[in-house]
Amino acid sequence: MRDTSELTAAVERFADRLRAAPQSRLQRGAAAEGLALARELSVRAQRAEEPGREPRIMPDAGVFTVADQLAVAGHDLAEIMRTAPAGSPEGELDEAVELVRKAAERAGI
């Protein structure tokens, strides 16, 4: 089992910032960054869990729900990575953490 605490911590930090952001900041792009990241993490989780199946795209449920969508997608991916069999690509975890970091920077929160 891999330690995915860095990924869950990064996702939670970004989600908390989105929850605390004013509506104007969310509407100026922070929510869009959060949703794009949530969708990417969700697709990665689905591909790992159900290879060969077309991933479902997370819907846009509005600027006030994006933090929860991000948290769910991030935790799903972390759990799949945590329980992945030995020999799974090690770089995926670092890559996911970097995706979260870069999205938070672009969101400006």
Rank of each mutant, 00 (worst) to 15 (best):
Leu70Thr: 10
Asp68Glu: 13
Ala20Val: 01
Glu54Thr: 14
Leu41Thr: 05
Glu79Tyr: 10
Glu79Asp: 14
Asp60Ala: 04
Glu50Trp: 07
Val66Ile: 13
Ile57Met: 15
Pro59Gly: 08
Arg19Asn: 09
Phe14Gly: 10
Val63Ile: 15
Val63Arg: 07
Leu41Met: 07
Glu79Leu: 14
Glu54Trp: 06
Ala15Gln: 04
Ala32Gln: 14
Ala48Gly: 01
Thr83Cys: 00
Gln69Phe: 03
Ala21His: 03
Ile57Asn: 12
Pro22Tyr: 02
Leu35Asp: 11
Asp76Val: 06
Ala84Val: 00
Leu70Val: 11
Phe14Glu: 13
Pro55His: 05
Ala61Ser: 12
Ala84Thr: 01
Met81Cys: 00
Val63Asn: 07
Glu54Tyr: 09
Gly34Asn: 09
His75Asp: 15
Gly74Lys: 08
Leu41His: 05
Asp76Lys: 08
Arg47Phe: 00
Asp60Leu: 01
Ala45Arg: 02
Glu33Asn: 13
Ser42Met: 01
Leu41Lys: 07
Leu35Gln: 14
Arg56Gln: 15
Arg82Lys: 13
Ala73Ile: 06
Ala38Ile: 08
Gly29Thr: 01
Asp60Thr: 01
His75Pro: 00
Met81Asn: 00
Arg56Gly: 13
Pro55Ser: 07
Phe14Thr: 10
Leu77Cys: 01
Ala38Val: 09
Arg39Tyr: 02
Ala32Arg: 13
Leu26Trp: 04
Ser24Val: 15
Arg56Ser: 15
Ile80Pro: 00
Gly34Leu: 07
Arg82Ala: 14
Ala73Trp: 05
Val72Cys: 04
Arg47Leu: 11
Asp16Gln: 14
Leu35Phe: 08
Leu26Met: 09
Ala21Ile: 03
Val43Ala: 09
Gly62Val: 03
Ala67Trp: 08
Ala30Tyr: 04
Leu26Gln: 05
Met58Ala: 11
Ala78Leu: 06
Gly52Tyr: 00
Ala73Lys: 06
Leu37Pro: 14
